[in-house]
Amino acid sequence: MIKINQISKNYETVKALKNVSFTVDENELFGLIGSDGAGKTTLFRILTTLLLSNEGSATLNNINVKNDYKKVREIIGYMPGKFSLYQDLSVEENLNFFASVFNTTIEENYDLIADIYKQIEPFKTRIAGKLSGGMKQKLALSCALIHKPKILILDEPTTGVDAVSRMEFWQMLKRLQTKGITILVSTPYMDEAEMCDRVALIQNGEILSIDTPKGITNSFPYKLHAISADNKYQLIKDLRNHDNARTVFPFGNSVHFTTANNNLNEEELYNYLMTNNHTNISIIETTPNIEDCFMELMKPSRG
């Protein structure tokens, strides 16, 4: 269980974290979603005892990260955003090394890492620097798990990994969760939020919202329409010029659109687009996803 209480961190004049508080329950898969520079890594570095906060406190399984940092280090597994294992040691040597500094062996905790490590085991004599991105990430996860941590903290584990490996990775996390590990993971990809039990949205060092993915999407207060046409760029421009437009965001092949009075007259909009020479127009009401909610929550801070 992770309890974060009113944590603030300043880097000289920049406020990286402002009064961040939330709780991650025992055995929960908790996602921290935010764009680059939102403060995710800073928060993780504080939780993993690498950085001291200016204000506030945090406990991991009721152990204080500031006062009892040595005990914290024994119960956490941390995988930093940047691959930081020994590039000149082989897969096996890396794993052995991290096992031995935690006073354990690969064999002792093999069952925990088995289904991850099996995928890279055929390359166990290869030096880590020569592994592909996906394999590096699996090795890093294996190393973070080798001492059977109670809490796993992963900083953007899927950044720079292909779509298939990303899906695989989240399934691995789900399986780890069944073994009783509390997992806190950050990601800039909003679609991954759906995989978490709960998510916190963070922006400019502030937590905007904490809820289940469903709860966040349900709380979206507006009717949302997905609008598409042949000329997407012109479509965005024209929608923005529409009198009733509130938000216009491109999303995949379509444009997500909400109205100021929250009551879209589809026929009127269709005609408006027709008169602006659009072709193949389609207007469908759609359910909001995390990204829509995030854009919505971010709106005030963008002015």
């Binding site: 690498l50 040595k70 280090r73 024994e74 941390y78 930093p80 294992l85 020994y86 590039q87 991290f98």
Partner: peptide, 13 residues
């Protein structure tokens, strides 16, 4: 530079 010292910092070393 590689970041391994940070990784070591979260171990009991």
């Amino acid at each position: 530079e590689i970041g391994t010292s940070e990784q070591l910092n979260v171990t009991p070393i």
